[in-house]
């Protein structure tokens, strides 16, 4: 593709990077990335990928913006309360960078629609808040051989890993979803808002590394950090032969919708009432 003068100026700080250059920027502009969840993680991911010029950004989220989201979901502004998150996110992306084509899915990712949706994209980013969908993204991406970035945050902690076909998947580390009653409810647990930005921007950097082929991805490693101590730690891992989806005797061969934690059910109920 030929860049216009404006584009050369807009992406000049990428183009100046020896490892990226015009070629790398072209790869970014041709990239198609699906962001699952337009919340705490999805917000910074979407903002940075939009600014970077990722050609197509898909966003899937069935929720509307709630006042309690604004403490960390920086893509949504006060006037967006009650607006569908995907619409609010699309508006900001278009304002940051009109080069980006945004595809919105105002729904939940489910066992039924996951494979069909993710096949349209080069890379999938998990910005979800619940384990059923985290496992669904993992299984769908392993089955479809699609790279993805896992992200999780809780209180003052964050964790992320990148999967590419053949590397350790989320299930290699976390075999199956925790029992729903063991998961701290959303209102009990809480999260320091800036943690979402810390983790989301790491995930966005992984996407850009993947698209440009620069550097070493966070594969076969789990990065964790705690903001109280501000200590980061990388735990080496490797594909687990007993993994239920990518091991030598897989028991997960199709997609399933796991039971949602109580807080998710309640929040979706709340959403229905708001609608």
């Amino acid at each position: 593709m030929d860049f216009t003068e404006d584009q050369i100026q807009r992406y000049s700080r990428h183009i100046l990077l020896q490892d990226v250059g015009v070629e790398g920027q072209e790869k970014i502009n041709n990239g198609k990335v699906l962001i699952v969840g337009a919340g705490g993680l999805g917000a910074p991911i979407a903002l940075y990928l939009a600014a970077a010029g990722v050609g197509t950004i898909g966003i899937i989220d069935g929720d509307v913006v709630d006042l309690s989201n604004l403490q960390r979901q920086v893509i949504h502004f006060t006037p967006d309360v009650n607006k569908p998150k995907v619409i609010s996110a699309k508006e900001k992306i278009n304002l940051i960078n009109p080069d980006v084509k945004v595809i919105t899915y105002q729904k939940l990712l489910t066992a039924e629609n996951a494979l069909e949706i993710i096949q349209e994209y080069d890379f999938v980013v998990d910005g979800t808040d619940n384990f059923p969908v985290k496992f669904l993204i993992n299984d769908a991406c392993v089955i479809a051989k699609k790279p993805f970035s896992h992200g999780g945050i809780l209180r003052f902690d964050g964790q992320t890993l990148t999967y590419v076909p053949g590397s350790a998947c989320y299930r290699c580390l976390f075999h199956s979803p925790p029992p729903p009653n063991a998961v701290p409810t959303c209102s009990q647990a809480g999260v320091l808002g800036a943690i979402a930005g810390m983790l989301g921007t790491i995930q966005a950097a992984e996407v850009l590394k993947y698209l440009t082929g620069v550097g070493d991805l966070l594969t076969n490693r789990l990065l964790t950090f705690n903001a109280k101590t501000m200590e980061f730690r990388t735990i080496k891992s490797k594909p687990n032969d007993n993994c239920p989806v990518c091991g030598s005797h897989p028991t997960v061969t199709g997609l399933v919708d796991y039971e949602q934690a109580v807080c998710d059910i309640e929040s979706h109920r709340k959403k229905k009432i708001n609608e």
């Binding site: 969840g37 993680l41 999805g42 979800t128 992200g151 902690d157 964790t224 807080c263 929040s267």
Partner: peptide, 10 residues
Amino acid sequence: FLYFMGGGSI
């Protein structure tokens, strides 16, 4: 010891 972390959206 690796902990489950949900986080994110809601």
